[in-house]
C-alpha cells in the first residue's frame, strides 16, 4: 500500500513541487490550498502523514495543526511543517500547536522524503 501524504500549501508552485516529488517517491498525494481546505479534506483523504505550510490565507498552519490534533482520529498523525531558514519563533509555535517535525524550505526532494520517512513507520 502506498503511503498517503496530505500537503497543505497556498503556493501553486510549492504544491506542484510537492506533488512531483512525492509522486516520484511513490507516495499517494492529496493536496489542499489552505488550512480550511486541509481540515475539510482530512477525513476523505485519510492520510498517513501531513506536510503543511505556515503562512496561508483563511486558516494558517498553526490553526490547521491545532485543528488536526483536535480530531480524535488524527490527533496523533505525524505533521511536518514547511518553514523557511531557522525561523525559531515559527518552529516553536508550530511545535506548540502540535507539529511533529519540520522541513526547511527551500526543500530538496531528498530532505523532504527523508523527513517523511523519519516520522512514518
Amino acid at each position: 500500500m502506498k503511503k498517503k501524504v496530505l500537503t497543505v500549501d497556498d503556493s501553486r508552485t510549492i504544491r506542484n513541487m510537492l506533488l512531483v516529488t512525492l509522486n516520484n517517491a511513490g507516495f499517494e498525494t492529496i493536496q489542499a490550498e489552505d488550512g480550511v481546505e486541509g481540515l475539510e479534506v482530512l477525513e476523505d483523504a485519510n492520510p498517513d502523514v501531513i506536510v503543511t505550510d505556515i503562512n496561508m490565507p483563511r486558516l494558517d498552519g498553526f490553526g490547521f495543526i491545532e485543528g488536526v490534533r483536535k480530531n480524535e482520529k488524527y490527533r496523533a498523525i505525524p505533521i511536518l511543517v514547511l518553514t523557511t531558514e531557522s525561523d525559531a519563533e515559527k518552529k516553536n509555535r508550530a511545535r506548540q500547536a502540535g507539529a511533529t517535525g519540520w522541513i526547511v524550505k527551500p526543500f530538496d526532494p531528498t530532505k523532504l522524503i527523508d523527513a517523511i520517512e523519519r516520522v512514518t513507520a
Binding site: 496523533a76 505525524p78 505533521i79 502540535g98 507539529a99 511533529t100 516520522v119 513507520a121
Partner: peptide, 8 residues
C-alpha cells in the same frame, strides 16, 4: 501527542 514515536 505531537505524532512522534519513540520506536521510530
Amino acid at each position: 501527542t505531537k505524532g512522534n514515536e519513540a520506536t521510530l
